[in-house]
Design a protein around this nucleic acid. Structure first.
Lengths: 239, 239
DNA sequence: CCTTTTATAGTCGAGATGACTCTAAAAGGG
DNA sequence: CCCTTTTAGAGTCATCTCGACTATAAAAGG
């Protein structure tokens, strides 16, 4: 950024794109909006929009998230920058650089078709067909990142409501990783990680359950997981 | 990115900033350029520059890296997107969104003061004083990221020449993490990780060494490290 | 020749991990 | 009302890993 002047650069449009993930009925879901205009009219796309002149990308992402989901309290949930997509041809109309974010939601309030009047909906991750622009790749990158972060961070609690059972927490791992985990071993690992979860003083969940009622836990104060909760079954295949 | 038109957005300048790291004489060094103009004239800054109209950020980063370091073959070295910095006030002159990258170099050819005629130099990471703009934060983020990646990836070989000893590889970890590692245990871990390193057919290093000559290794084909090489001494302090 | 230095092999005990079994406590159906 | 089903949670056990440590080999330097 040495010695440039105001006319040495080409102006770009800067947008944010959001990969908003949640877990519904044991399956990973992603928030998508249906495009009403060309290009990609009728296609599904990740929600997003322009960064305003006085906003950072993070601020813009949080604003768009509130607009698209209709959530009033968007301040507490997990929002993290994923990466920036800047290929010259990624938007056929003009030069758009997009800063992508991942967001994780506990339960799934049905979106109320946000500010741009397009339809917004939760769709299962696996059947999120071809998306507009390069959003397939952004979504896949988001999934990879979240999966990797489950190993080293306490991120999984971001998918859970304020109070949750260890079974629900395990289902987060199983859903995102797409594999089954041994319940006693998972429980042992989680409880042995200081600050991951802490028990709710004197409560157990009764009504909904089919079996023995499970103890309730809250998210702990730690953010990093030491030691990590490594995902198995990558045997014999580096990469 | 729903239904916008050409005039619904404010144009931004988009730049790349590079945190180029290497290891010199057992210490982490970073490539810095001295600014010749206001703002921050006389301050050191990360190398970088504008993304051209037909470039992706990755392409721009690689071009700037070649210009600033004078390296002819910049195609093979490790370049990775770090994150994007978009705070409204980060450049006092105008609205600049910067995509930051990390780059790792094996040896340290002295830079030949790149395209912008500013002085470029390797400076020790620890004494890289207050930098221009928000580059202190970018550099710190780059250090954090590289340190974390050493645990889960074969990235450390990017700091090493094509053929290296396990002692050199260990020094990469010790330098970036700032801690000492047990040599036999490090060796055991590295050799037990399939695809991390592979021995050079029939060679040993003689002349330079003070002690017993060490065997030479090349970077293997794996990129991920399974199981990870965890850094110790985070005992008792989550986060 | 002896000390210093670095590489490499090997040992040993504590702790983590994966696979597994067993019991407790609920719902549901006959 | 009993019996099956279902889920939570405790516990066991062999194996593997990891950190700490010792020992040996092969060079340089005095």
């Amino acid at each position: 950024m040495q010695g440039y002047d105001k006319y040495a650069f080409e102006p770009f449009a800067v947008t944010v794109d959001l990969a908003v993930l949640t877990i519904r009925a044991g399956a990973l879901h992603v928030l998508l909006v249906e495009r009403g205009q060309e290009p990609y009219a009728g296609h599904w796309a990740l929600p997003g929009g322009f960064v305003l002149p006085d906003e950072s990308a993070e601020t813009a992402a949080r604003r768009e998230l509130a607009e698209e989901t209709g959530l009033s309290d968007v301040s507490g949930l997990h929002l993290e920058q994923l990466r920036t997509y800047s290929e010259p041809g990624r938007d056929p109309r003009m030069r758009v650089v997009s800063v992508a974010f991942t967001a994780l939601l506990p339960d799934a309030p049905e979106p109320r078709g946000g500010g741009d009047a397009a339809e917004a909906r939760w769709l299962p991750y696996d059947s999120a067909g071809p998306l507009a622009f390069d959003h397939d790749r952004i979504l896949a990158d988001a999934h990879d990142r979240i999966g990797a972060q489950l190993e080293n961070s306490c991120l999984a609690t971001a998918f859970c409501p304020p109070e949750f059972t260890l079974g629900e927490l395990q289902q987060v791992y199983e859903t995102v990783w797409g594999i089954a985990l041994d319940r006693p071993n998972f429980r042992r690992k989680v409880l042995a990680s200081p600050g991951f979860v802490e028990p709710v003083p004197g409560a157990a969940r009764l009504t909904g359950g089919r079996g023995k009622p499970a103890a309730l836990y809250r998210a702990g104060t730690a953010t990093a997981l030491q030691p990590p909760l490594l995902r198995p079954s990558r045997e014999g295949r580096p990469e």
